[in-house]
């Protein structure tokens, strides 16, 4: 009797460990995550407008149909990137995701406080190499550190009513992500 209880108890404890292990490991094994869905649509380090979600298909499930969305699949191994996103008439937001879909940074047009949201994206190592005086002279330069070398950027522009969708799509299409050297 005691033996049976012991087997049950150890089984349950091991089960808990298996559960936690698989939950933590699952993101590494998902084959249909956002990055994988966007890979065939997007060349590396360039911004492209995504098709609007319809009842039949959505590139990213649960995306908000009131927004025009442009996406950039980035790879920082060749150097930092510059992101430029002109703000639309209504509301524009830029969100950064790691390779595994973790939203590590997001900013909207009001927080950016100007007509073009301008950000430099780099890894922690690349940030450490930025000369300090350069950082001081460009005090209003926004630097975002990416925790992973690859990842995703979404630029989303709101269309407050359906007739304004072309405006939102123009704003999202005008967004750019490109290697920093080229932008200078």
């Amino acid at each position: 009797m005691i033996r049976a209880l012991l087997v049950l108890f150890i089984g349950a404890v091991l089960g808990g460990i298996v559960h936690l292990g698989t939950i933590l490991y699952l993101p590494r094994t998902a084959t249909n995550d956002a990055y994988a869905r966007l890979t065939p649509l997007l060349p590396v380090n360039s911004m492209k407008l995504l098709p609007q979600p319809t009842p039949e298909s959505a590139v990213l499930p649960l995306s908000d149909p009131a927004f025009a969305t442009a996406a950039c699949r980035y790879d920082l191994s060749g150097g930092p990137l510059k992101l430029l996103a002109p703000v639309s008439q209504a509301y524009t937001a830029v969100s950064f995701y790691t390779r595994y879909g973790v939203a590590y940074y997001a900013i909207n047009d009001r927080a950016a406080g100007r007509r073009v949201i301008e950000l430099d994206l780099m890894t922690a190592a690349q940030h450490a190499e930025v000369p300090e005086d350069e950082e001081v002279t460009a005090a209003d330069r926004l630097i975002v550190e990416s925790p992973t070398t690859t990842g995703l950027i979404l630029v989303r522009a709101l269309s407050p009513e359906p007739s304004l969708m072309p405006m939102a799509q123009r704003a999202a299409t005008a967004a750019k992500c490109q290697p920093s050297e080229k932008a200078k």
Partner: peptide
């Protein structure tokens, strides 16, 4: 919290499996 780097492992497993991207906290 799902819109931050501190996302809990459960939410994370769900978004990875579904292929969604959560809204960042600076957005909404």
């Amino acid at each position: 919290k799902a819109g931050t780097a501190d996302i809990d492992p459960y939410s994370r497993a769900v978004i990875e499996r579904n292929g969604t991207l959560p809204i960042g906290i600076g957005d909404g």
